[in-house]
Design a protein around this nucleic acid. Structure first.
Lengths: 227, 227, 227, 227
DNA sequence: AATGAATGAGCCTTCATTCAT
DNA sequence: TATGAATGAAGGCTCATTCAT
């Protein structure tokens, strides 16, 4: 019995065939290795999504870039869509705490915003996170979950904190224009523009984001500072 | 996050049900009819590209929306890619003249910028053209030709005109901060932000773009105006 | 503009590449050709489904067997599942009229059943239709729509007609056992068994279905007929 | 037809939630534990194969249902195919002895067949074994080894025994129709039909198999018995 | 010029099988 | 012995592009 006539289809020798190049680190435990793989997938996927956008990104490329098999991706993510959403969400979150300064700080509001600008340029505008901002703008309308998440976790919080800062500055007399508190977007706008500029036009005309943000703060605070 | 709304394709469900409706106007010449078809394709394609982005847009949908056969598209455009590039370019050009105010105008610069803001909100921020801005941000990195075109035809011209305005305002004493001329982006930033906001967050929190731009101009010109 | 930098991915020259072997019949109209193709797909799909069952059948194989491209199948059927259901349903229907004899016939009931048996053996047991019966048995539980359809269109109708015949035969005195009318399945059972036998065991031990059905009718009608 | 119930996979949702429950009996020897596992795999695999058929069954589901790891299956079976064949064979064998009554029995043949029918309904038609019959019908053509095995071990033996019974009945005058001995299939047919009916149509129209088999025996033995 | 049926390469996802632990 | 993470070859389905009509 055992060795029955094959149901006609030639079996193409499934399973691991060619054993990747010898594993680099030999000492890790299973869990560590898995975490490393997951991280590699996340990095690779972010890069691909940033480069091509959601639809044009191929899981094949992600797998190749992460140096894992295509199936491995599905051990970590349900499908392409949830991977995208999860990635886009989690990529910004760890940064939130650092970007929003505690509203009850000792120094001047201007100093706080200078610090914010510095962190933003260092951690967002000049890194892959900036491209993620662009990606959110690009894919947001087709991924309501992403737009929702961003509004809830990033935008509304960020603007609320910014508004609190502005109101503090108004109360202290640092800012003369009380209506600014109604549109904290105005304070953030150049920072966002800087991020988009870097993605699209930097090679046509480099932008000194630090200077631009300083000039913008000068405008808001009505003074002139030199770098 | 997990359970995101699928970016599923709604069936366009367009008018024409069965047989092609008898040609409306029989008097047109061949060339006119062709031009009409081409225009229909352009409109349809723009809508689809805006809704789905380049890769996710299907020529089938464009054809259905334009009420032409799929093959007809190829009588007017080489392929999907060149259609996209051509579209994105031509869609903005007719607007350029109106947006850039003549630098040698009689009234105050502030008035000129108020006028600019008004036109921008009416013609860009609240229309499909605003979505095209977002589309450029979304697809620019993958379509260097588009980024190039935009930088050359829109951005550099627009910023140059804006810089000229700023310098004029500085010379006239309307603007106190001479460094602003180095970064005309600052003046435009809230307008761009308004466009992006409308696409992504309008339903979470409506933005009064007119007011925001007025407050921004108040900031720049150091005065307070009421609507 | 037109000739933009490719978005990096090499385009693999889509569309019809190798033009099938010269079309056999050149004179057909489009609709005819389409109908032919559809028929070819149906034939091929039936063969494949019969040979492998639903899950193990590959659309690739169906396409190859039908000599069409894989995509062509989707011009005629929504997906594999609906193709399967549609096929299985429609394959038997055209035969129903011939299998169910009009209950008000002139000759004896035995003659009617002999005729039924003859048609059944010629048109079902020894043709692909017999395999479809087996396929229904095989896949029915996983395709409720198919079991439903078969019960409604084939089984209930067939058994009702059979019951009518039995009752007629009882009334006429041809059949002595009145309880038989409660279980028309008994009359049909050997015919079904014949079909299954041919699929599974014919090569182990050929079955003379005609003889078997005659003996069965002898049993039911209590007489002995010779072939 | 169109809108068929998807043969979607219900999540098995089995007991064991997290960590492996502490071994119930600690006294077993290694070999016993292994035999238990093997038995669990067999039970689970049978259930899955019956529910989905060979190709659509996933080893993952078998493993989960058997509460073993996927790899463990391969310690007991060479691959999916041999597991299937081995299962199907061994599942019926233990039943064979009970189904075939000793040909030299004291009572009437009719009594023997009544007893057979009773056992068949109790042990086959209304249990998982009945589904195995359907499984053999379904997968037999693609697994010649299974068809072979069944013909050799079940069909030919069963029919031979049945033929012996019939001949005995003829010799004793219990059965009047000598030709019945040529087609013992006729005697078994309604039993098989009952099994198939239960799988496919029971919910459309319940079948009283016991009654049907009694009526059938009445037909064969030319008498009328009441339940 | 216009059509739309046909094509087939490509992509997401699944799952039998392997093997390091 | 048992595990289950990892693999990668399919397979169902899509859609840009072609071309006979």
């Amino acid at each position: 019995m055992a060795n029955a006539a094959k149901p006609s289809r030639p079996k193409p020798a499934r399973g691991r065939a060619g054993a990747k190049a010898a594993p680099v680190a030999r000492s890790n435990h299973r869990a560590e290795r898995a975490a490393e793989r997951r991280q590699a997938i996340i990095e690779a996927a972010l890069d691909e999504f940033i480069t091509r956008g959601f639809t044009a990104t191929r899981l094949d490329d992600i797998a190749r870039r992460a140096d894992v098999a295509k199936g491995t991706i599905y051990l970590h993510f349900k499908d392409k869509e949830s991977m995208f959403e999860e990635l886009i969400s989690t990529a910004i979150v760890p940064l939130l705490g650092r970007l929003v300064p505690p509203p009850s700080m000792s120094g001047s509001v201007r100093d706080a915003l200078e610090a914010f600008a510095k962190v933003f340029i260092q951690e967002v505008a000049t890194t892959r996170r900036g491209d993620i901002v662009r990606l959110v703008v690009a894919e947001g309308p087709r991924f309501p979950a992403i737009a929702d998440f961003y509004y809830r976790e990033v935008i509304s919080r960020g603007l609320a904190a910014m508004r609190a800062l502005i109101e503090l500055a108004i109360a202290r007399g640092e800012i003369k224009q009380p209506e600014l508190a109604r549109f904290p977007q105005i304070v953030v706008a150049p920072a966002i523009i800087a991020v988009i500029w870097k993605s699209l036009f930097e090679r046509h005309s480099p932008l000194d984001a630090t200077e631009m943000l300083r000039v913008h703060l000068d405008l808001i605070f009505g003074e002139r500072r030199t770098t």
